[in-house]
């Protein structure tokens, strides 16, 4: 079964000034996050599997947005991307178990390990290189430890826990589904040990990563699914999609940054074109598509009403 996640735009747009038309400007209880919650509900109504709430130092904070999204939806999976340095693993696990308990276990985790040194320094984080992966490994080990064992003790380079672990009723809940990414050796080893889904870029060598990851994860007795993270611009026909992209580029396009996307690479084409390309990934073992499509709210409906049926057709054809 294919999982389709929609990436939410959490960066603040320019403030919208009041136009010359008189408007009701009394404060109400709808805040600036309302648009994000509405987009989450649109994704849910349109039948998408979930949403990804990105970690963006210049945007809304992902855990807070994720908590609101979970509360205001019923079926949607909400994957929160976060920097492992944001809290201790015990505290992150504590926050996560509360969200799991109160959302019928719909939370996902996407630890973010990339980012440049200046950005990390501004967040008070001076780790670099392989240490980032070592810390992430300790973070996930300790978080899973307190989640699943009592007592749980841990001695690492970055974290220490003594006689930890949750008590009922905080026990027995599913650990958040873990999404990781990267193509380097450390990234693949981290995924082999901790990921449920390993996300790749659209142009990465899926076959090679799949083989490498299979070998590594087998050593830990685990199984890691593959996903692709990409931008999408799909329309009724190829010409319309190209017109909206403002480019004559082929179906694989690197110019999404020009449309305001965070993910520069992705697919442009008719729903059938894009569905066929998704199917091509699926044939190579990809089960999760983490998609950026803007503006997110109308695109959520577009993906649900147009792309999902086309995908289902492709899938049926493949099975036949």
């Amino acid at each position: 079964m294919t999982e389709l996640l929609l990436r939410l735009p959490t960066r603040h747009g320019p403030p919208t000034g009041l136009g010359p038309v008189p408007r009701d400007v009394r404060a109400d209880h709808y805040g600036p996050l309302e648009r994000l919650f509405q987009t989450g509900r649109a994704a849910e109504t349109a039948g998408l599997g979930g949403v990804l709430v990105p970690h963006d130092p210049l945007g809304e904070e992902s855990w807070t947005v994720a908590a609101g999204l979970l509360r205001h939806s019923r079926h949607l999976r909400v994957v929160a991307e976060f920097h492992p340095g944001f809290a201790t693993p015990v505290y992150a696990a504590k926050m996560a178990v509360t969200l799991q308990r109160f959302s019928a276990q719909r939370l996902g985790w996407r630890p973010a390990l990339d980012g440049d040194a200046a950005e990390h320094a501004a967040q008070g984080d001076f780790l670099s290189g392989p240490d980032r992966y070592r810390r992430a490994d300790e973070f996930l080990t300790a978080a899973k430890g307190v989640w699943t064992r009592r007592p749980f003790s841990f001695e690492g380079r970055f974290y220490r826990v003594l006689e930890g672990g949750f008590d009922a009723p905080l026990t027995g809940w599913a650990f958040p589904r873990v999404y990781l990414s990267g193509t380097g050796e450390e990234a693949l080893e981290l995924s082999a040990r901790h990921a449920d889904v390993h996300l790749l870029g659209p142009a990465d060598d899926i076959k090679a990563v799949r083989a490498e990851l299979a070998g590594r994860s087998a050593r830990w007795g685990r199984d890691v699914e593959l996903g692709v993270e990409l931008s999408v611009l799909a329309r009724d026909d190829t010409a319309e999609a190209r017109a909206d992209a403002g480019s004559d580029a082929g179906p694989h396009w690197e110019g999404f940054a020009g449309l305001g996307h965070t993910l520069p690479s992705g697919l442009v084409g008719s729903y059938d074109d894009v569905a066929a390309l998704f199917d091509d990934y699926a044939r190579r073992g990809v089960r999760t598509f983490s998609v950026e499509a803007l503006p997110a709210l109308p695109e959520a409906y577009r993906l649900g009403e147009r792309l999902l049926p086309a995908l289902a057709e492709q899938e049926q054809a493949r099975v036949r």
């Binding site: 404060a27 209880h29 805040g31 600036p32 996050l33 130092p57 809304e60 904070e61 855990w63 807070t64 947005v65 609101g68 920097h83 340095g85 944001f86 809290a87 201790t88 015990v90 505290y91 501004a122 967040q123 008070g124 984080d125």
Partner: peptide
């Protein structure tokens, strides 16, 4: 405070301020 990074916690709190007026 010891359980959270102060910069991330500021982002969490400010986002929650936005969500809650």
């Amino acid at each position: 405070p010891g359980f959270l990074n102060p910069v991330h916690a500021a982002r969490m709190a400010a986002t929650l301020q936005r969500a809650s007026h």
